[in-house]
């Protein structure tokens, strides 16, 4: 069955992608047996399905995601956690004693696992990876760019950590916490992340980030590309 796009072509909502409704994947919809794009994105074929990989868009929680959130309310049924201003998830608590032992206050930042997400809402759970983050710079990146920020098997994020000497925690929801030995190194990490976000789809990005961030760390060039936290 033919497809009507070149691999990685930028497609727009309503653009015809395929005549075979069985090939409809992410970011597409089927009408009258044909597959169309539903978002702006790069069209690609993965496992025989036609997918549109979006450039920008809301975070959609999936079970197992490790997210970073901000405690926004403490309630008898659990702790409400803001996952970036769009979604509030609930971390269920067994009893008051457990709540007290976590010692969380409104405004605290936590790293936590998504237990489930559906019509009833988003629920978080305490597991061995749960932790309260005590210091660092919190920033938001476009959630759709998170996979690029992490890179293949963590290559991009590990490279950033190595050059800047910063500890960088990335939530699947796009919230990121950076904690480093000096402001210069933290700013370098932020600038690197902003570069990845801006040019997520450009070629040779890893080398570009490496060169740019290295120069920032060594103080060779001025900053200013860092943008907002």
């Amino acid at each position: 069955m033919p497809v009507y796009f070149n691999e990685k072509e930028v497609v727009l909502p309503g653009q015809l992608l395929s005549d075979d409704s069985k090939r409809a994947g992410e970011g597409t919809y089927v009408m009258d047996g044909k597959v169309y794009a539903s978002t702006v994105g790069a069209a690609t074929i993965r496992d025989g399905k036609v997918d549109v990989i979006t450039f920008r868009g809301p975070y959609r929680p999936v079970e197992g995601d490790m997210v970073i959130g901000i405690v926004s309310d403490l309630k008898p049924i659990g702790i409400e956690v803001d996952l970036g201003g769009r979604i509030t998830a609930l971390l269920k608590i067994k009893n008051i004693r457990e709540l007290a032992s976590l010692n969380l206050k409104i405004g605290d930042v936590v790293y936590v696992r998504v237990a489930s997400s559906g019509l009833r809402g988003v629920f978080l759970e305490l597991d061995e990876h749960f932790r309260k983050i005590d210091e660092g710079v919190l920033l938001m990146v476009t959630p759709t760019k998170v996979p690029r920020l992490i890179g293949k098997r963590g290559s991009m994020i590990n490279m950033l950590k190595k050059i800047t000497g910063c500890n960088i925690m990335v939530g699947t929801n796009g919230l990121v916490v950076i904690n480093g030995p000096s402001p210069t190194k933290e700013f370098a990490a932020i600038s690197g992340i902003r570069l990845i976000e801006r040019e997520a789809h450009s070629q040779g990005l890893t080398d570009k980030v490496l060169a740019y961030v290295s120069s920032l760390v060594s103080g060779e060039v001025g900053h200013g590309a860092g943008g907002k936290a």
Binding site: I70, G85, G107, V109, G136, V137, A229
Partner: peptide, 17 residues
């Protein structure tokens, strides 16, 4: 505000900077 509460770690960070 953007949120009705401040993010605690950011308060610390902004002052330290």
């Amino acid at each position: 505000k953007e949120r009705s509460f401040a993010v605690r770690i950011m308060n610390d960070k902004i002052y330290k900077l």
